[in-house]
Simulated assay, not measured.
Amino acid sequence: MYIPPAFRETDEAAMHATMRAAPLASLVTATAAGLLCTPLPLLLEPEEGERGVLYGHLARANPHWREPAQAETLAIFSGPDAYVTPSWYATKRETGKVVPTWNYVAVHAYGPAEFFDEPDRLLAVVTRLTERHEGARPDPWAVADAPAEFIAAQLRGIVGLRLPITRLEGKRKMSQNRPAADRAGVAAGLAAGDPTERHVAGLIPSA
C-alpha cells in the first residue's frame, strides 16, 4: 500500500481498532494459479503472537485454501471512507487549483496463512465470531441454539484460518496534507452528510 508520510498510521492500537471495527476483510494470496481473494469476517486476537493473530474460516469448496502461497498472505481491512469535493476547500475560492479526492482508513495485515479442520478448533472460531456479531443484538443467536449434529455437519463444510501477523501497515488519509481552512471546510461539508460521512468528519484533524 502506498503511504505518504502524512498519512502513515503507526499506532498499533489504532490499527487494531480499525481491524475490529471492519465487519468484512479481504484475504489475498499470491499463488501459482494467480491472485486469489476471498471476502470473509476475521477475528483479531491481539494478545496472541508477536503482533496478534487473525482467525476466520472459508468454505471447504473454496480453492483458496488449497493453493500454496508464494509469498505472505494479506488481509485488507477497510475503515470509514468518504468522497471529498473540491467545493469544500477554501483554496477553491482563492486559486481554483484543487481537485477531488477520497478520505479513508485502511489497514493491511501480512503473515503466513495456516489452515486447519479439527472440529474443536473450528467450533471455537465459529463460536467466537458468532459472539462478536450477535453480542449486541437484543435477542442474540448462539451456536448452541442449533442442534449439535447440525453444527457438526456444517463444520465439515469449512476450513479454519489462522494468520499470525508479522507486519502491519496502516493508512489514515484525512486531509492532513491540506491547509487548516481546507480541512475545516471538508469537516463541515462531511458533517452535513450521511452517518458514514459524519463519522469521517470527526476524524479530520483541526490542527
Rank of each mutant, 00 (worst) to 15 (best):
Y2S: 12
Y2R: 07
Y2Q: 05
I3R: 05
P4Y: 02
A6K: 15
A6M: 14
F7S: 03
R8M: 02
R8E: 15
R8A: 09
T10E: 15
D11M: 01
E12D: 12
E12L: 12
A13R: 15
A17R: 15
T18R: 14
T18A: 15
M19F: 02
M19I: 04
R20K: 12
P23G: 05
L24G: 02
S26V: 10
S26Y: 01
S26D: 11
A30M: 11
G34F: 11
L35Q: 00
P39C: 05
P41D: 01
L43Q: 09
L43K: 09
E45A: 13
E48R: 15
G49A: 06
V53C: 06
V53D: 10
V53Q: 14
V53M: 10
L54N: 11
Y55S: 09
H57A: 12
H57Y: 11
L58E: 01
A59D: 06
A59V: 08
R60C: 09
A61S: 08
N62W: 03
H64Q: 09
A69T: 05
Q70P: 02
Q70L: 13
L74A: 04
A75M: 12
S78P: 00
P80R: 12
A82S: 12
Y83S: 10
V84A: 15
W88R: 15
Y89N: 05
Y89R: 12
A90I: 01
T95R: 08
T95M: 14
G96D: 01
G96Q: 07
V98F: 13
V98M: 14
P100W: 01
N103L: 11
V105D: 14
P112W: 09
E114H: 11
F115T: 07
E118L: 13
L122K: 10
T127W: 06
L129V: 02
T130I: 00
H133T: 03
G135R: 14
A136C: 04
D139W: 11
D139Q: 15
W141T: 07
A142F: 12
A142T: 08
A142H: 06
A146M: 14
A148R: 14
F150I: 13
I151A: 08
A152Q: 15
A153I: 03
L155A: 01
L155P: 11
G160R: 07
L161E: 05
L161P: 02
I165G: 07
R167C: 01
L168Y: 07
G170L: 15
K171F: 03
S175D: 08
Q176H: 11
N177W: 02
R183Q: 00
V186M: 01
D194V: 00
P195Q: 04
R198G: 06
A201N: 07
I204V: 10
P205L: 05
A207T: 10
